[in-house]
Simulated assay, not measured.
Amino acid sequence: MTRHKGKLKILIFNVNWLGDVLFSTPAIKLIRKIYPHAFIACIVPPRCKEILEENPNLDEIIVFDERGIHRSIWEKLKFIKLLYRKKFNKAFLFHRSFTRALVLYLARIPERIGYYTKKRFYLLTSAIKSPDTSKMHRADYYLYIVAEHEKYTGEINFKPDFFISQNDKEIVAALLKEEGVGDNDFTVVLNPGGNWTQKRWPKENFSVLSAVLIRDYGAKIILTGAAKDKDLADEIANLSGMPLINLCGKTNLKQLAALMQKVDVVVSNDSGPLHIGSSVGAKIIGIFGPTSILLTGPYKIDNSKTISRDVGCAIPCYKQGCSDIRCMKAVTIDDVLDVIKKITGK
């Protein structure tokens, strides 16, 4: 493997989802390992910027808001001009999008590396044939682009990176104090949301789980999520008949990570927050249904436990509008309680 020492300028065009951007951080770390002296920038959508903030392997984060400010052709052209002026030498394209490949091509970046597709291969200088993704974790999928192009044969043992500050921890400590949560309380975070409903454990299950944990263990239950999840959390609290703490919309991602790191255990659907919590060492239980633990489960993390049940469906299943969701319903409250007991010793 060749080590590069010049002030090379490298651009990474990342993917769109919180969990996937987090899964890309091992590949970012590998690029930094190969090019320790390079200037490395990464493009992400606005909602994913926090995932990469404070990451020491990056020198710059560039926001590409395709659904907002960069929606029009004119704004895309201005964005392309911005990239051109930055004079990047090389770009890794983690996204399979034609549009993003075209952006890099028009920005005249000399080396453009990404996976081969029939629609865009001619826009890349290095179009890499995709490996068999049926048994490959998403993090390894991004790592493969870098390792294959760079002919890297060394050891790769990187975990996802997510960085939180002392200030984030202090904000969370103050918030918990305000909500009446003490340092010695048995505290459980429940993260009931998800980017599509098929990945959500039934709200009735979360409500019963909350009631049992409060009744049997005197737990303090905290519901987390974005502002859009507040109504769901309120429903769970009302169904439980118990005084649950609803922090939906009251934390950013950094503070959510600090919260998960601090509490005794976290129960979450397969979502970005699940992987964020895993990456900062939280004791976390992930409930999986239509998605594959092998492909998108916690990556090289010992502190995470996952629960899923085989109901005869093909996994992963991306059938939108599935009204049955029997894969999620098959995971019982007792299943989750048993894992909580094992993790916490309760």
Rank of each mutant, 00 (worst) to 15 (best):
P202T: 00
K220L: 09
W201S: 02
N195H: 04
A174G: 09
E179Y: 13
F186H: 08
N205K: 13
K220R: 15
D185F: 14
V212A: 05
A211L: 12
T197H: 11
A173H: 00
D183W: 04
G218C: 10
Q198K: 15
R200F: 07
K177D: 12
G182H: 12
V172S: 01
K220S: 06
P192M: 15
V208I: 14
K177Q: 10
G194D: 03
T187C: 14
K199I: 07
L190M: 03
W201Q: 02
V181H: 06
K203A: 12
S210K: 05
W201D: 03
K177A: 11
L213N: 04
V181Y: 07
E179H: 15
I214D: 07
E204A: 05
L223S: 14
I214P: 10
N184Y: 14
L190N: 00
D216A: 01
N184W: 13
E178L: 11
P192A: 14
K203I: 09
G194C: 11
S207F: 00
L190G: 02
N191E: 11
D216C: 00
V181T: 12
I222F: 04
V188P: 08
R200V: 07
P202L: 09
Q198A: 15
L223N: 13
I171E: 02
T187L: 10
G218N: 09
V181N: 04
V208N: 11
I222L: 12
E204W: 03
I171W: 04
G182R: 13
V181F: 10
T187Q: 10
E179S: 14
D183L: 12
F206E: 05
P202N: 04
Q198C: 14
G194P: 08
K199F: 05
G182L: 15
V172A: 00
L176R: 01
S210L: 05
I221G: 00
A211T: 09
D183I: 08
